[in-house]
Each structure stands twice: as C-alpha cells, then as structure tokens.
Design a protein around this nucleic acid. Structure first.
Lengths: 362, 362
DNA sequence: CTGTTAGCGCGTTCAG
DNA sequence: CTGAACGCGCTAACAG
C-alpha cells in the first residue's frame, strides 16, 4: 500500500517538505540558477519521496516553449507516412521534444482544423504534408507562420508557398523508371494513379496543366512520365493514363480498361502502392502475367514486393530520412538558424528485381 | 500586408478591444456562463478582428483537463498499429480530443519514458500496447493510475494487471486456423514467429510456460496452436516451432531449417506479417510452391495478400475497431462511468483464399 | 447578466 | 546563495 494521492505534488509542496523556499526547489528541480549543495540534496530527496514530477503544462506556460512539435499527415496508417512520422519523432525524441501527430485523410478542411489545434496547443513547430494545391489554399499555413510558428513541408511542396520543403526526386524517379521501360523496348507504357479528374485529357498540354494544378507528388511523377516519353521522341497517348479516384479499386478498373484497348500497354508504371495492388488485381483478372506478358514498375517498396511472383521492381522512398530531415530543418528554424526557404530533395532508390522484361514478341 | 503580430492576442486584449470585462470575453469565447446578446456580438467581432485563438495550454492549466489523450505503441510505422492509432484518433477527434502518439519499438525503458512524458503533459487518459510481460514490470502503468490518469491496454493484456484491455481472440483465431490446416489433412504444421528464446523448448510443458511468460499476443497464439494439436490428438514437435529473434530475416532462417528436416512441414501458420514474408522468402529459396507443395495461413491481412500467387489465406485483425473500442473504454473511464476492469475481446475474420490445400500425396 | 478577484504550477526578476 | 513577489492566459467563484 503506497497510498498515493491522486493529485500530483506541486513544487511548493516539495519545497515545504524540504523546508526551503519555493524558488530554491524550482531552481534545483528545473536545473537552472544557483543552489547550495545541502539544500539541493534536501530538495531532491523530498521530490523523490513525494514522487514529484514537473507539470509540463505549467512550465510551457511560463516559458512559452512547449517542447512539442506537431505533424500533420494524410493518413498515419499508411506505411509511407508511418515511416516519415517515425523519422520525425526519432529526431524529436533525440532533442527531448515530443511529437503530436494528426491525420487529415487528404481533406483540406481537416488539415485546417489540425493546424488550428496545433496553434492552440502552442507547439514549437509544425511539419505538414499538405493537401493544399497552391498558396491560395494554404492560408492556414500562412497563419501559423504569422503567429511565429515555424513550418516545414514534407513529401509535398506547395507551389507558391515560400517555405522549406523536404521532398523526394519524384520527377527524376518517374522519368528514370519509365525510361528503363522504354529502353527495354516498350512502346506502350501505362501510367497508373491519378489525376483525379472526370474527363480524360486528350492533349499533352492539358495533361501538363493538370499536373501543375495537382498534388505535388502526383504532378511531378506525371511530368517525369512525359519527360521520358519526350526523351524517346514518343507521342503521349491519353488512353494510357489513369484518371479518376485514387483508390485501389479504381486503379483496377482503369488498368482493365487499358488492357482492353486495341493496342494495350505492354508495361505499367504505378506511382503508389495501392496503384500496384490495383494493377495486379486487374492483371490477375485478365490472366496477364507480370514479367512475361507485361512489365511493371511500382513506387513505394515494401517487403512483400520481394516475395511476389515474380519479385517486383520498385522505387523505394527514403521515408525515415524524409522525416529526420524535415525535423532537422524545422529545428534549425526554431533555433533561428534558417536562411531562405529551400527545397530539400532526397533521392529515391531504384530496386531492380524481375518484373521488367522486353515486351512479348508479336 | 496584413501586418500580423507574432505574439497572439490574449483574451484580455479582446476584452479591451470590445470594451468589456475579461470574464465576459472569456465566457463568450469559452462558451460557458451567461452573456448578453449585444456584448457577445461585440466580443465575437473583436475576437475575429484580432484573430483571437484560445491558448489551450492556459485553459488546460486552470481546468485540469488537457483534452488530449496519449497513445503508446510499439511502432507507429507498423500498419497494424497504424490502424489502431487511426481508430483511436478518429474516436478522439469525434469527442474533440487530440491524440499524442509515442512509439517505443518494443523497448520497455522507452515505454516507461513515454508514460512519464504523458503524465507530465497531464493527458486525460492513456492507451498503451505494453511490452510489459507481467504486473511486476508494469510499475509505470500503475503510477499513471495512481496519479488519477485512466489507462486502457490495447492489443496486449498484461497478466496480473487489473485493467481494462481491448484485444482480439488470438487463441481462438490461431486454434481455428491450425484446425483448418489439420482438417485439410496436414500432420506437420510449422509455427512461425517467436518465442524469442535461444534454446528450443523440447517439451510441451516448457512451451506452455514460455507462452505464459511472453508477450500476450504471441503466447495466446502459441496456445491456440497447441489447442488445435490437442483437439486432433496430435503430439507437438519442437522442431516445428520457430524460436529466436522476431524478424523477417530470422523467420526465413527458421523456415528454411524446418524445410530441411527429415520430415518437413506440409503447412505453415505464420502469426505476423513479417513472419509471412520471411516464410515466403524461405519457400522461394527452396523452390517450394505455396498452395501446391505447402499450405500457408498468415495473420494480419493486407491488400497484397490478395494479389499473391496464389492469393493467401489470412486472419484479418480489426485494427480500427480495436482502436475505437479502446478509446470508448477510455472515455468511459475518464467520465467515471467504468466499472470493474474488463477484458474486451474482438473477433478476427478468417479470409479464405487459395493458399490452403491438402498435403501433396506421398 | 456582468465585472472583480483569486488561483492553476511554474519560471523569473529582484532585493536580502 | 536564497526566498518573496509577480506574471503567463485562462477558468471559476463571487458579489454587484
């Protein structure tokens, strides 16, 4: 029976128990200012005996620092963001800072609400993978900045926002992957995942405009796809790009549609994990064999990709590094050491396995 | 140029701007007590004009309620916990409460540190998937309780701790899965994943003791495996259970070892996602075909399991429900509506696909 | 209905 | 080196 009390002891109680003034106790327990050897020990002993634990809330109130940073991502259950968040919180923990994570599920209204919550909680900084498409829809981010809270973007830069951003080389990665496909001899390469529009853009120009007005990652990857086509002097065929809802189910629908074309794709470039599984469902439904009848390259490597039949060639994103880098940039800003806003681009890794082969003869 | 100030306006400033007393402003902005129609509007207008936003820290200090709950899991990047956390934060958000997530990576020391942080931040409640094996190593959880912070366990109950816990029917699920394998005619069923001991337990009794002294989930699943064997009147063979590090790599090593036995398993029961991929690596390395040469059932369904060749039969865990339920139980405790500690068991779902077949003839 | 007053627990001058 | 006194921004009794 330790008969603990349900209300935690305050620093004053510790001081009383130790027979010293409040501020002497505060100084030793807070680790600042001068305290004599003897009193310090008495305070420590009393604190230990009473089970004293500083009230972080009260401390934050008077210091104005919460030792907490906020992270806003689309979906914490997505392994990609899981990795990013882990990277951030690892870096934060190393600095003695906690991490508050909020999910928005790609909803801008939720993102705004999340930002307000973080502002209200007086976090020391914010890392956000924003769903905002441009500066005009990023007022909430501007507001955080105006209130003196440093913000860094991760995974997705927002065009027009003069802010630090940590992203990967989406465009180059996509271009490289599609080029590999082209080099293997493919002339018909399907692009799987977004943009989320109803009408299929028929002209190259429309598609580029669309890319520019879309989520950073999607747009960049689409541009990379077009780059590769350009490099090879090939025309773009609207029928080979997926449009509509970005879900596994719809990816399947779109790939099945492509397979039914008169001149179906002989290779697929999938820009998301769910795009890969959706495409695989379509291939299975149509009895098309990966690596033999069709080639495939996906984004977001996962352990299962290596045990597929055949093992899938994938582009791996440095999720942890994305997070730790974002945290570093944020800490620099918090410490007032940051200069002009910068775009930090991390490299992806092309993992070659067995899902790419020359197109079937004929 | 909106020329925002970097220090946010306080409620007193709003009151001054509106020409009313602080508490009138506080009452309208805080949404409590009576305020006249006209003054209320003046306050609202002033607050809006100044861009007032309540300081949640200060509010928490005086109310003693932080409107925040803490969640401690092993690894936020693990899709399983990702789902649980999402379930919790969805339920929390619906209640206007925020969620603080901390990862421990299965390290008890980290878990204790995380608990202390949450106590210091005065969260209103804690949900934890604890790595503690018994009440003796769960002192930190007791301490939170002693300080009046409700705690509910999720995914893993801790034997000896008189606390609400929300878990799945691990033992039944394992027993059911292994029974299916046995019913299909298999006599040699390998158990893949844990316990993490050096020496392979030779007797059934030792294994049961081990199960009892291990992580809740692991132990229960192992018991279920033994149950199924008992039901079928079959003897347990120590060579068919994996021991050692719980990693994908080691699972591969252990499965390869099993395949090299004089009498290798004709079926595998994998109790984790990484156990499945590890096992698949081993099968690939040995040229053993799933569904033909060997049957397999895994835990933790994921979208990729459905597109494997053949599609994998899996046990799906209700991750979101686990989270929402844990949150509900926690809220009940916070509201003082909870009775005696209870073990809430959620059902898993057996998803039959094509990785189970009769053992090969011969 | 409204304004005044007193804390919440801690950090931080500022005399002693 | 120590302790008293004030303030952070807000809620909550309390009179008016």
């Amino acid at each position: 029976m330790t008969s603990e009390r349900s209300v935690p002891p305050t620093i004053s109680e510790v001081a009383a128990a130790a027979g010293v003034g409040r501020s002497t106790a505060a100084r030793t327990l807070g680790g600042y200012g001068y305290v004599g050897q003897e009193l310090r020990e008495r305070v420590l002993e009393a604190a230990d005996r009473l089970g004293y634990r500083a009230n972080a809330l009260a401390r934050s109130m008077s210091t104005g620092v919460s030792q907490t940073l906020g992270v806003i991502v689309a979906d914490i259950a997505n392994p990609f963001f899981g990795g990013v968040v882990r990277g951030i919180s690892d870096a934060a923990k190393a600095r003695g800072v906690e991490t508050l994570v909020l999910s928005t599920y790609e909803d801008l209204a939720e993102e705004i609400a999340a930002t307000n919550v973080l502002i209200d909680k007086r976090v020391d900084g914010i890392v956000v993978a924003s769903a905002a498409l441009d500066a005009a829809s990023a007022g909430h981010i501007q507001e955080a900045r105006d209130r003196g809270i440093p913000v860094v973007l991760v995974d997705r830069a927002v065009t027009g926002l003069h802010l630090d951003a940590v992203v990967i080389d989406n465009r180059d990665a996509a271009r490289g992957a599609v080029t590999r496909l082209l080099d293997a001899g493919h002339r018909r390469v399907g692009f799987v995942w977004g943009p989320p529009v109803e009408e299929r853009p028929r002209r190259r120009r429309e598609l580029i405009d669309l890319a520019a007005r879309n989520l950073w990652t999607d747009g960049e990857r689409l541009q990379g796809y077009l780059d590769a086509l350009d490099d090879a002097g090939m025309a773009f065929d609207a029928d080979l790009v997926m449009v509509g809802a970005k879900t596994e189910e719809h990816a399947q629908v779109e790939v099945e549609r492509m397979l039914d074309l008169e001149s179906p794709p002989t290779a697929l470039f999938c820009t998301e994990n769910d795009a890969v599984t959706g495409a695989l469902r379509a291939l299975r439904a149509r009895g098309v064999r990966v690596g033999a009848d069709i080639s495939l390259i996906g984004f977001d490597d996962s352990s299962w990709a290596a045990v597929m039949e055949p093992p899938l060639t994938m582009i791996e994103q440095p999720t942890l590094a994305l997070g730790t880098r974002a945290a570093e940039v944020l800490f620099a800003a918090i410490d007032g050491e940051s200069g002009a806003a910068e775009l930090h681009t991390l490299k992806t890794r092309y993992i070659e396995r067995s899902s790419v082969a020359p197109p079937p003869a004929g």
